[in-house]
Design a protein around this nucleic acid. Sequence first.
DNA 1: TACATTGGTGTAACTACTTGCAAAAGTATA
DNA 2: TATACTTTTGCAAGTAGTTACACCAATGTA
Lengths: 115, 115
Amino acid sequence: MPIHKEKPVLDCPFRETLDVLEGKWKFAIIHSLLHHGTLRFKNLERDVAGITSRMLIKELKLLQVHGIVLRRPYPTVPPTVEYSLTECGRSLEPVIEAIQAWGVQNRAALAAKIN
Amino acid sequence: MPIHKEKPVLDCPFRETLDVLEGKWKFAIIHSLLHHGTLRFKNLERDVAGITSRMLIKELKLLQVHGIVLRRPYPTVPPTVEYSLTECGRSLEPVIEAIQAWGVQNRAALAAKIN
DNA sequence: TACATTGGTGTAACTACTTGCAAAAGTATA
DNA sequence: TATACTTTTGCAAGTAGTTACACCAATGTA
């Protein structure tokens, strides 16, 4: 039986936010949904360069649980599932914009240092 | 011989930024340095709740390489090493502030969903 | 004398993340 | 008939991230 490892209670809004947005893909997914509004699963997968369906599904589920992403399935064949941001998710726009702005401003510096 | 796995070239300022800030601790470290200005290693370790010296060192090294963090050692005993943000690092303030603001605004909602 | 202090490093272990591959179902197209 | 399409899951395997623990040096304090 695995030991239950509970997260230390931090009581810090900043760290709690990071816990929700943690991982390699969440910011990129939100960025894409913010830009496109609504996307079908496959289109989202194509838009988030490098992600696998496995990971995308997993991340989307977490984001749903946290009330950031909305999932709308339709009973078609083949299946159609649309993903979009909730009101709460859209309120992350300033965060995404700030990262984007920093990236654009420091693009040259970054390019020189990443290898 | 391990296969050399190169990062796919993305040519996207947003994703490049995420690559630099990736991981569990970088935002928290930057947040702390932004708030305190300059901190000795041990004080920084105490301020970033939950981090180990091992991880802190590793992350600080990466942040130095990317020109975000500045390291200033003094020849004392026991050693004194001060860490602070560079100009470039300080320009991440809008990002940190946006995350902080979102966290404060969504605190109640987060608390209800994280377990 | 015994112990605490600081900024790290090394080793070994462990957990978490991430990937690739195959598969399902019902319709549409070649 | 064969193959593609979409969304999602399961399994196995691999890689990356993270931790714990001990240790160093030289000084200050009890």
